[in-house]
Amino acid sequence: MSAVRSTPPKAPELDIRKTYKLYIDGKFVRTESGRTYQVAGGRVNAPRGSRKDVRNAVAAARKAFDGWSGRTAYNRGQVIYRIAEMLDARRGEFVSLLGKGPAAEREVDQAVDSLVWYAGWCDKLHAVAGTVNPVAGPYFNFTFPEPTGVVGLIAPEEPALLGLVRHLAPALCGGNVIVALVSESQPLAGLVFGEALATSDVPAGVVNLVSGSHSELLAILAGHMDVNAIDVAACNDSEVKQVQLLAEANVKRIVRSDGTHSLEAITSLMEMKTVWHPIGH
């Protein structure tokens, strides 16, 4: 009596929900703390990242730094462009996470635009922000930007996707590696952005995404001795002060970019290196 079925039996009218996870070292992981908090009107449990998650993320980022900063600028530009492609390809999911409608569509468009804009800067910023210096002596002397290292990014609460992307893209463009705290109240778009990253040839550890309580995790990031810079764009004044107080331990660079597209958004997370060599024969 075995009839071969060409289609599975009709499923009950229940959607398949996604389990949202942190994105650390190229893997989608549950928080080691086992904690979650409810978002999206209580329908969804988001991971509530812990001190250990942040520390794991920093360790993964540091491990990825030499590889990512050692890529050619051309290659970095292609990878960032690829993120734009993957984001655009997943447009439907992001639009729905961002509440559907024209505003959500526009936010995804702008996030894609931001990635494309910074992708194109990778192999040009040295020509604009670097210099050859005519020193008064027989020396060849030049200055060029290098990435600062591990960048901590506090993403704004909203726009949940664009706010993350337009701060993340310039840091990536310069060759930095990133540990980002995604929007606390609307973490899903930020966490799902990890799926675009994971399919974009971004090496594991280059971008790490952690959701959870900003007030809990901010101090861990700001006080971490292996974080070189913090972008506090999304912090209020008292949070900025908290970061500044902790940042002195290893002289962290503190950046307050406003998210507008600019060369300084890239170079503020870079160090200028000057090299001298005698001229002679």
Partner: peptide, 19 residues
């Protein structure tokens, strides 16, 4: 390092960034 001197050392010039 912010300044790298190759085959020289401790050179300074107003046109050359230092830090």
């Amino acid at each position: 390092a912010g300044v790298v001197w190759a085959n020289t050392y401790n050179r300074f010039d107003p046109t050359s960034p230092f830090g």
